[in-house]
Structures are given as C-alpha cells and as structure tokens.
Computed example of a mutant assay.
Amino acid sequence: MTMATGIVAVGLDLAGVAWATRVLLAVTAALWAVMAVTFASRLRGGREQRRSQGREPVSLTTVAGSGVLGVGLLLFRHETAAEALLALMAAASLLLLLPQVVRHLRRRLPGAAYLVTVSTQSLVVLASTLAKQVPARWLLWPAGVLLALGLALYLFVLGRFDFAQVRDGAGDHWVLAGALSISALACAKLAAAAGTPAPRPLEALTLAILAAALAWYVLLACAEVVRPRTRYDGRRWSTVFPLGMTATAAMTAGTVSGLHWLDVLGRVLLWPALAGWAVVAAGAVRHAVASRPSA
C-alpha cells in the first residue's frame, strides 16, 4: 500500500497535479509509519520467527516503501529525512534482508520474488535523486553498482519465475513488469544526476529497459482481459505499484532523453494507475469493514 500510494503521488507531481500529490504523500507517510511499527514489532519476536520472516521477499517491501517515501520527501526539499531513510534502507537491505531472501529463493517463484530487484533499484532512485538535489556526486558510483546488481537479480528471478502466474496470479505477478519499470526509472535518475546532457549509454539503457517493461505491461494487461480476476486480494496493491511506476518511468525517461512522446505516454498511463489505486483502495476498505467481528 505504501509503495503503490507513494509512486502514484510521485507520478501526479510529474504531471503537475500538486494538490493530489500532497494528499497522497500524506497518506503514504501514514502508511509508512504503520509499516515501520509493524516491522519493529516483528523484530521483537523470537529469533526463529525473525529468521523465517526475513527470508520472505515480502519483507523487502519495507525497503521499497521507504524509498518511495524518500523520493516524495525530496519533492518538498526534506533532504535530511531522505538521507536518513537512504541510510536506513541500505543497512536493512544490503546487510540484513536481501542476502537472506536471495539465498532462499527456489524454483517456480511468484511475482513477489521480483522485490529483490525493486528494493535494490529503490536505493538507486533515492540515491540518484539525492545526488542531484543535494548535490552529493559521491553517491553516483555506488548507485551505478546497485543498478547493475538489480538488473542481475531480475534475470536471476526471471529464470525461476512461474510463468503460469501471468494467467493465474492474484496481483503480485505484475511486479514482473514493475521491477523493470523501476529499473528504467533508476537508470534515468542516474543519467540525470550524472550531468547534462545525460550520458548516452545510460540514456540508451533507460530506453531499452523501459521498452521491455512496456512489453510486459501490455502482455499482463491482455492477460487480465482474457482472464479477469475481479475479487479483492491484498496482492492487488502489487498491481497498482507497477502501473504507477511505469507511468513515472516513462515521464522521467521522456525528460532525460528529450523524447516528448514518452512524457505524453507516461501521462496517459498515469490514469489507469490512479484508477487502479482508487479501485483497490475501495476494495481494501470494504474488505476491512466486512472482516470486522460483529458486536
């Protein structure tokens, strides 16, 4: 919920809808606080419980959600808070969560396994945005290394992904596209932070990754039409995140590359992302109300 809400807010900012950006970023901050408290409470559990939960890809949503919030904070010049989040994310992901998750990945993986890439590239996006805004150019080299790591992890998971999820998945199968979209965004942010004009190799890599993300986007959308999955499932937030991320990546890539049509495409794709957010949020509220025990 934090990831999906935050990236839709960032996309709305790129589209120039300031009031909606502020509203959704406030919601994102509240959701992040709940996420942080939940994560901290799990750390107080037994050692075996912590180890078991730390092996699950879903644990990496704490990293990715923090990255999205950090980028949102930078929209309003809260650099110190964003720097603190980046340090927290790097420590949690690279030292604690990511090695455990990767080590325990098996065959026939669900879409949530692509969070190994999403969490890694969220570090790149936040670091690159900070590198340009603060500025702090020393962040560019570690960000470049993490960009390459995130792409390698994507290929690693792709070789073990259960492609039947495209037909039967409950929502998180969309991270197949979202992981590439955030990789394209990370590459575009790194290119923008590296200087003007953007380095040609990074610009070309951005467009290549974005093209692959868009191809998956179309395939997954067609699969949803052929086999509709209309019942509410909490994993549908993992559908909203790629929708918003693809729109944001397209708008950012369009700015970096100078291709105006990509910016237009991103603005068009922002509408299904916003609609998806509203539908899933309404479903979440209905589900929460229906799940309440009767008096």
Rank of each mutant, 00 (worst) to 15 (best):
T80G: 14
A91Q: 06
L115P: 00
A91N: 04
R103Q: 13
T117S: 12
G70F: 05
L96R: 01
S119A: 15
L96I: 15
H104D: 12
S93W: 03
A82C: 11
L94Y: 07
L105H: 06
A92R: 01
L96Y: 10
A87T: 06
S93H: 00
L126H: 04
R106N: 14
G111A: 06
S122R: 09
V118W: 06
V116P: 02
P110C: 14
T117D: 10
G70V: 01
G67T: 00
L95Q: 13
H78Y: 14
G111D: 08
R77S: 15
P110H: 03
Y114N: 10
Q121G: 09
L105T: 04
A81M: 11
T120H: 09
H104Q: 14
L126A: 10
V116T: 00
Q100L: 15
A127F: 07
L98P: 03
A84N: 08
L73I: 07
T80F: 14
G111C: 05
P99S: 15
T80H: 12
L97Y: 09
L96S: 13
Q100R: 15
E83W: 11
L85C: 10
V125L: 09
V101R: 02
T120E: 07
Q121D: 10
A87L: 04
V102G: 01
S93K: 01
V124Y: 03
V125M: 04
A81R: 04
V125H: 02
E83Y: 02
L75K: 10
A92C: 11
V124N: 02
A82Q: 01
G72S: 14
A87G: 08
L109N: 10
A84L: 07
V68C: 04
L98V: 01
L96C: 15
H78A: 13
A92M: 11
L115A: 04
G72L: 06
A82H: 00
A113F: 05
A87E: 01
M89L: 11
A113K: 05
A81H: 04
E83K: 01
S93Y: 06
L95R: 02
T80S: 13
S128Y: 10
E83M: 12
S128P: 11
Y114R: 09
V124S: 07
Q100K: 15
L123T: 05
G67S: 05
S119D: 06
L75Y: 10
R108G: 14
V68I: 13
V118D: 09
P99V: 14
A113C: 14
L74S: 03
A81N: 09
L73G: 09
A82W: 02
E79H: 15
V116N: 08
R77W: 13
A81K: 04
L105Q: 08
V118N: 05
